[in-house]
């Protein structure tokens, strides 16, 4: 048990919980407006606010020693270095003097299957019984990536 007395009564924690629940409701209702920026802010912006509330008020990070905050920031920094180091090669499928052909085909095929099935990607490939067959279930058949991407399989999944 920590030496510090956190000095909060139950109502402090219950109010924090209520605030978290209100934020949760907003994050669920926000995307219903179907405005991209509102969805982004209500879903991910609110997630950050909720995370800060839990970290500070429940984990008591705000009164924990600075050493711990620095430790956690180091972990987040490591994650960001990984993300920005790798993301350019993963998020994009072409650039100056390079092209990731199989990824492009994968996206094209996936979009075609999705649009053809009226936005129900799975139903087109899994069949009415909900379980699907071999051709419709596999990774290759559904996305047709790399060398296995072919017209025949694309036909079969429709």
């Amino acid at each position: 048990m920590s030496e510090e007395s956190h000095g909060h009564d139950e109502s402090y924690y219950i109010k924090t919980w209520l605030l978290l629940v209100v934020l949760l409701i907003i994050s669920v209702l926000g995307p219903e407006l179907e405005i991209k920026i509102v969805t982004f802010v209500t879903a991910f912006g609110i997630a950050v606010v909720k995370a800060a509330l839990v970290a500070n008020r429940f984990m008591h990070l705000n009164i924990e020693r600075k050493y711990i905050t620095s430790l956690l920031i180091t972990g987040i920094a490591a994650m960001l270095i990984f993300f920005f180091g790798v993301a350019p090669d993963v998020m994009r499928h072409s650039g100056t003097n390079w092209e990731h052909v199989s990824a492009q085909e994968w996206v094209e095929h996936g979009m075609a299957v999705g649009e053809a099935s009226g936005g129900h990607h799975g139903e087109a490939t899994h069949g009415d019984d909900g379980h699907g067959d071999e051709a419709g279930h596999g990774d290759e058949a559904e996305h047709g990536h790399d060398a296995e991407h072919g017209e025949g399989e694309a036909e079969a999944t429709h």
Binding site: F83, V86, A87, V90, M91, R92, H93, A103, W106, V107, H109, G110, M111, V113, G114, S117, G119, H120, H121, G122, H143
Partner: peptide
């Protein structure tokens, strides 16, 4: 990063 690079995942996410 994969989700951003693969817009077709939206058809699964629904």
């Amino acid at each position: 990063m994969h989700r951003i690079g693969h817009p077709e995942w939206a058809y699964d996410a629904i």
